[in-house]
C-alpha cells in the first residue's frame, strides 16, 4: 500500500512542499490527492522533474496523482 497524502485546501506552494517532504520518507512512490488544477499542474511538474512516472485520475472534485519511481 502506497502512502497517501491529501493536499486539499492547501494554498501554494503547500501541495508541492507536502509532496516533497513525503517523498523524502517514501522515495519509492506516493499517492497524492489534490483538489484544483493549479496544484495538480505544480505537483505533476515537480514529480516529473524529480524523475517520477506520474498517472492522474479524476475522482469527483479531486484528482489522484500516483507517482512511481
Amino acid at each position: 500500500m502506497m502512502k497517501k497524502i491529501d493536499t486539499s485546501g492547501m494554498s501554494c506552494p503547500q501541495p508541492v512542499l507536502m509532496t516533497k517532504k513525503s517523498l523524502e520518507e517514501n522515495p519509492e512512490g506516493l499517492d497524492i490527492i489534490v483538489d484544483n488544477n493549479t496544484a495538480r499542474g505544480n505537483v505533476e511538474r515537480f514529480l516529473k522533474n524529480a524523475g517520477y512516472r506520474v498517472a492522474i485520475s479524476e475522482q469527483g472534485d479531486t484528482f489522484l496523482i500516483e507517482a512511481r519511481k
Binding site: 501554494c12 506552494p13 508541492v16 512542499l17 516533497k20 493549479t38 499542474g41 511538474r45 515537480f46 522533474n49
Partner: peptide
C-alpha cells in the same frame, strides 16, 4: 498561466523550478 511575481523566486529557491 498562474503568473505570480513572488512564486517565481520562491519556487526557484524551494524546488529549482523555473516556470
Amino acid at each position: 498561466t498562474r503568473m505570480c511575481t513572488v512564486g517565481g523566486t520562491r519556487d526557484m529557491i524551494l524546488f529549482k523550478d523555473m516556470y
